[in-house]
Design a protein around this nucleic acid. Sequence first.
DNA 1: GTAACTTACTTCAAATTTTGAAGTAAAATT
DNA 2: AATTTTACTTCAAAATTTGAAGTAAGTTAC
Lengths: 190, 190
Amino acid sequence: MIQKLLHEGVEVETSIDGYDAGDFPEITAEKQGHRHPVHTVVVTHFELARMIERVNRRFASLLRSELTKLGIEDVGPAQAMVLLAIGDVELSVGELLDRGHYIGSNISYYLKQLGDGGYIDRVASQRDKRSARIRLTEKGEQLCSNLRNAGGAYNRVLARDDDDLRNLEIAFQTLHRLELVWGNAARYGI
Amino acid sequence: MIQKLLHEGVEVETSIDGYDAGDFPEITAEKQGHRHPVHTVVVTHFELARMIERVNRRFASLLRSELTKLGIEDVGPAQAMVLLAIGDVELSVGELLDRGHYIGSNISYYLKQLGDGGYIDRVASQRDKRSARIRLTEKGEQLCSNLRNAGGAYNRVLARDDDDLRNLEIAFQTLHRLELVWGNAARYGI
DNA sequence: GTAACTTACTTCAAATTTTGAAGTAAAATT
DNA sequence: AATTTTACTTCAAAATTTGAAGTAAGTTAC
């Protein structure tokens, strides 16, 4: 609707990697000297959003099964994501909120569970006693490290060569752009 | 961990688009004739997953606010995504499941709400009476169309030129690859 | 110095979303 | 005709997210 056929001599690929054309409302092709897109599918806003939703679901269930394999019962995928977001630095709740765009009460809730499970330590900051400083405990680091370990196999499958790496990076940066655009829109209205 | 420095003469960019290097555990740079990545940040599995989680959250809240603007109270973002997934074709619940990798009982639940709200019609298939055929009602199409309309502004911001389009497409296809890899892994184990 | 305001979080209760076990009925298979 | 499989639905419970209200520490303006 927004982008119309940009070039003459349009060719339509009927199938891309398992998806049939029905999944893409708008398809157009371009023939330029570019290496990357042989065909250009014009991807809309909502298609990306739906894809992201699906992929997110997939990942959550994968993470759940990794956790099960590790025999961990008191940490769900959402909490595991919080642990991974904390990583190996010490930070405040506020910084953690920024990292994941969580809602405050939500993080509080997760941190409570993770604290109870012994995965994180919380120390009141010296300078500002309102601010709780968070860090992983030994146990928390162990879990993250196990998860990262298990994740290594996926990294190897996903990043087979330079081309893959490039695409992963473009995907990452494009998602970051989506994040900014959608986030600003929500705050300031487009 | 997986990808080590691939080339000599490594240069590290300390900041990318608002993110500081601390967000990326592994950074390496390459100097090749490629146009796209001046620097290559090696993006891992989990970083992509965290990004996807964040972006998903952003989008959901944006969608929620669009729905509020439209004065719609009986459809949440999740249900709206189902409506958008249905689109303008008539399909069975099974096909819808595939489209979003939903869990059966989940879709059933949403479809019930959407049916009650008058957004979809369900007709038992003639050939196979187990299979319910789903399609949007006038009201459902209206809502989707309003949403797509509102979405147009985002498409214009996101896809400013050919380069943007290419990146959006690469992001889309890369996400699809993630979907497949993570999905297969969940079923068959890496 | 103290009253008012802001910041940084926590708590709780409710809403939403997801999950899984069990059920139903039609179709396919044996 | 009996059995199994498919295509869904229902229900109850669990997980996650949200928002309103609260607390306590810090800041600012008299």
